[in-house]
Simulated assay, not measured.
Amino acid sequence: MSAFDELFAQHAATAYARQLALADLIGERDWQLDLTEGVATFGGDLRFPIQLLGTESHVDGSWLWAWANAVSNLPPQLLHLSEWMRSYGSSSSIPELTEPSFPLDRADGAHLALIASGLTGRCYYRGPYDGGAVFFHLENLPAEIVAPVSPERAFLVVGQVIGAFPLDHRITLLSFLDQQGWSVSDNTPALVVGTHPGGSEMRVEFDDQNRMARISGQVN
Rank of each mutant, 00 (worst) to 15 (best):
S2G: 15
S2D: 15
F4D: 03
Q10P: 12
A12G: 07
A12S: 14
T14V: 11
A15Y: 04
R18P: 11
Q19T: 09
L20G: 06
D24S: 10
D30Q: 14
W31S: 12
L35K: 14
A40K: 03
T41P: 05
G43V: 03
D45W: 12
P49Q: 02
Q51K: 04
L52N: 01
L53Q: 11
G54E: 07
E56W: 09
W67C: 13
N69W: 12
A70C: 03
A70T: 15
V71S: 05
L74D: 07
P76D: 05
L78C: 08
R86P: 06
G89M: 10
S92N: 13
P95S: 09
T98G: 10
T98H: 08
E99G: 02
S101I: 02
S101A: 13
R106M: 06
R106S: 05
L114V: 07
I115A: 00
G118A: 03
C123V: 15
C123G: 08
Y129K: 04
G132S: 02
V134E: 10
F136G: 03
F136D: 04
P142K: 10
I145M: 02
A147G: 04
P148E: 02
S150I: 01
S150P: 06
F155D: 01
L156N: 08
V157F: 10
G159E: 12
G159R: 13
I162G: 01
G163M: 10
G163A: 13
F165T: 06
D168T: 06
D168A: 10
R170A: 09
I171F: 02
L173P: 06
N187K: 08
T188I: 08
T188M: 09
A190W: 00
A190Y: 00
T195R: 14
H196Y: 12
E201Q: 11
E205N: 15
F206N: 04
D208P: 10
N210A: 14
A213T: 11
I215H: 02
S216Q: 02
G217C: 07
V219N: 03
